[in-house]
């Protein structure tokens, strides 16, 4: 079984992001970039399927400029067998990403596509679902457990108030939640081996996809700064403030 994993280059989760002075975007100058944490979980799950003998090949795909090859190499160091970059310039909206991934799916014909449920930069949580709709494939989103069962995949989903297990016919799409697994660290020998693994580059035209954006980013603003706390005189005053100001009781 071939597994396709999508990985996205994002600002490292440890970095405190700042908006540009003109509010046009997030300032990415000299900021550490990394593989999106949810995508890392997706790679780990695919590699575990391969180690279990369920998957035969793991292909990591990323969409972006040349810099995103760094994240593909990370996925290769974690255990993916080969990489694909779809080379684009500038920001790409979720619908275009889904269309490009559909093109890759048609080329590679994987039995399973695993994506992060969302990226930590845009927080859109759309790509997996859009890809499912475009490719006509069943989807199990927010997965906390993935079990291959013959020609089906059982996906346990994290939903409000509990867990829901769905059985999907393969080929299928899974988007990962935080608790699906704990990704491994890439070992130094595997980092070296990753440099020798194949990485193909396609253009959107190769996949027959128009990357025209339908969204315009109007502005980016940092969240309001937290106000300093105050000391209350007694419990009664605390209760009064919780009830009438915070309105939490």
């Amino acid at each position: 079984m071939k597994v396709l994993v999508a990985v996205k280059r994002v600002v490292d989760y440890n970095v405190k992001v700042r908006a540009k002075a003109d509010g046009s975007d997030v300032d990415l100058n000299n900021v550490k970039m990394a593989i999106n944490p949810f995508c890392e979980i997706a790679v780990e799950e695919a590699v575990r399927l391969k180690e279990a003998g369920t998957a035969t090949e793991v292909v990591a795909v990323s969409i972006g400029d040349k810099a995103c090859q760094e994240q593909i190499r990370t996925a290769l160091a974690l255990g993916a067998d080969r990489g694909i970059q779809v080379e684009t310039e500038g920001a790409v909206e979720p619908l275009v990403v889904a269309k490009l991934l559909k093109g890759v799916v048609e080329k590679e014909e994987p039995q399973l596509v695993i994506l992060g449920k969302q990226s930590i930069d845009g927080d859109n949580n759309q790509t997996g679902q859009m890809l499912g709709a475009l490719a006509g494939m069943p989807q199990g989103t927010f997965a906390s457990e993935v079990v291959i069962d013959g020609d089906k995949v059982n996906v346990t989903r994290e939903v409000d108030g509990g867990l829901q297990t769905v059985a999907l016919n393969l080929p299928a799409i899974v988007t990962t939640d935080l608790r699906l697994n704990e990704p491994r660290y890439a070992s130094l020998p595997n980092i070296m081996k990753a440099k020798k693994k194949p990485l193909d580059v396609f253009s959107p035209a190769d996949l027959g996809v128009d990357v025209t954006t339908h969204l315009t980013q109007v502005s980016v603003e940092p969240p309001a700064e937290r106000q300093a706390g105050i000391k209350v005189e007694d419990v009664d005053q605390l209760l009064d403030k919780l009830k009438n100001e915070a309105k939490v009781i």
Partner: peptide, 14 residues
């Protein structure tokens, strides 16, 4: 590039 990549990976781990 390899030496810097190793440094990044080891830093993340440590």
């Amino acid at each position: 590039e390899d030496q810097l990549l190793f440094q990044d990976s080891v830093r993340d781990f440590l």
